[in-house]
């Protein structure tokens, strides 16, 4: 177990480093004039692609140096303080430094601290619903396999999940909060300030995200549950005279959850790295909306930070999934 963990963490760190290099390279060479937005902002729009001012901005930001020097500086900033020069001003950036936003020159890490709780709240609520609705409905359907209710459920999840997610979210937002006020206005209020308002403000988002996402959990858990219920050990358990409840929950469900956990790990990682459509539609200031806005205005440090965050989430999610496997299914051996 310990050796496995060390191995996985090392491999995971390698992937994170590789992704950060790829993202850095993409945004180092990609934009023709990475400093153009900054220079325009400072000079009331009077800064063209050929102007000497722009050259000066890019020089100071290090875009004329070799990429490995600049990547080195950036990576070192994660553990030590560094100074960043934008135009005529020098900014101090304490560790962990992810740079300064080109939009308003605040520290990326500070902005991150503001945005992350929003995304985290969304992810917690939605992932809870994924499992609660998806797995319980899937298990119920599997136990009543072949009945009309089961068939209707399977075909309705198929149709429902074929509709693009953003349309479902957009129409529910418009109909349920603007046309009628079935749900209160969607907003984020910190759970530490007012837990009730935190729930009521995000309830609709959780429901939309959770219900839509739970369709795939329903299908997966129904499928694997049908398989698990026909296994020999389930028949043995029944033959021993164990109550149906125990057989379903303790014997069948545990192994049926393995594929569910796999997609759950990946889904949570994606939820944590920002639900772009959800945050844009419901106007929530989370990581996803931040990332989209940053790409549109070419706020490179922010894009780097969000991509890195995503890579970290995916890698950590995958390692956790592997660990959970071994608890769920005694046949899985980590080696």
């Amino acid at each position: 177990m310990f050796a496995f963990l060390v191995k996985r963490i090392l491999a995971g760190s390698m992937i994170i480093i590789l992704v950060s290099m790829m993202v850095y390279t993409l945004f180092f060479y990609g934009p023709q004039h990475p400093g153009l937005e900054l220079c325009r902002r400072d000079n009331h729009g009077r800064c063209g692609p050929t102007s000497p001012k722009l050259y000066d901005y890019e020089e100071k930001l290090g875009y004329h140096n070799a990429i490995y020097t600049e990547y080195g500086k950036w990576a070192k900033g994660l553990v030590a303080e560094r100074t960043i020069t934008i135009g005529a001003t020098e900014y101090k950036c304490p560790a962990p430094c992810l740079g300064l936003s080109y939009r308003d020159r605040t520290l990326v890490t500070e902005q991150f601290k503001d945005k992350f709780p929003v995304t985290l709240s969304l992810a917690v609520g939605a992932s809870f619903l994924y499992l609660a609705i998806g797995v319980s409905v899937g298990v119920l359907a599997a136990r009543r396999r072949g009945t009309v209710a089961d068939k209707m459920l399977v075909s309705s999840t198929l149709v429902f999940s074929s509709i693009p997610y953003y349309l479902v979210a957009l129409i529910s937002m418009l109909v349920l909060t603007i046309s009628t006020s079935v749900f209160p206005k969607v907003e984020y209020i910190s759970p530490f300030d007012n837990p009730l308002q935190w729930v009521s403000g995000l309830l609709l988002v959780w429901l939309v995200l959770g219900l839509f996402g739970s369709t795939s959990y329903t299908r997966y858990s129904r499928g694997s549950m049908v398989e698990a219920l026909s296994e020999d050990y389930v028949r043995t358990a029944k033959a021993k005279g164990l109550p149906a409840r125990t057989v379903v929950i303790k014997h069948a469900l545990r192994s049926a959850l393995v594929p569910v956990v796999t997609i759950f790990g990946i889904d949570v990682a994606f939820l944590l790295s920002g639900t772009v459509f959800t945050e844009k539609i419901f106007q929530l200031e989370g990581i996803g909306k931040w990332g989209v806005e940053a790409t549109v205005i070419k706020d490179l440090p922010v894009v780097q930070a969000t991509s890195l965050m995503l890579a970290v989430c995916v890698v950590v999610g995958n390692i956790l999934v592997d660990i959970v496997y071994s608890f769920l299914d005694p046949r899985v051996r980590l080696a």
């Binding site: 990332g291 549109v296 894009v303 995503l310």
Partner: peptide, 19 residues
């Protein structure tokens, strides 16, 4: 497969269009 589509799209599209 492990790289998220949306983020890739967000990062690459503006760069190609600008270039």
């Amino acid at each position: 497969l492990s790289f998220p589509f949306l983020l890739g799209a967000l990062a690459v599209a503006p760069i190609i269009s600008e270039r």
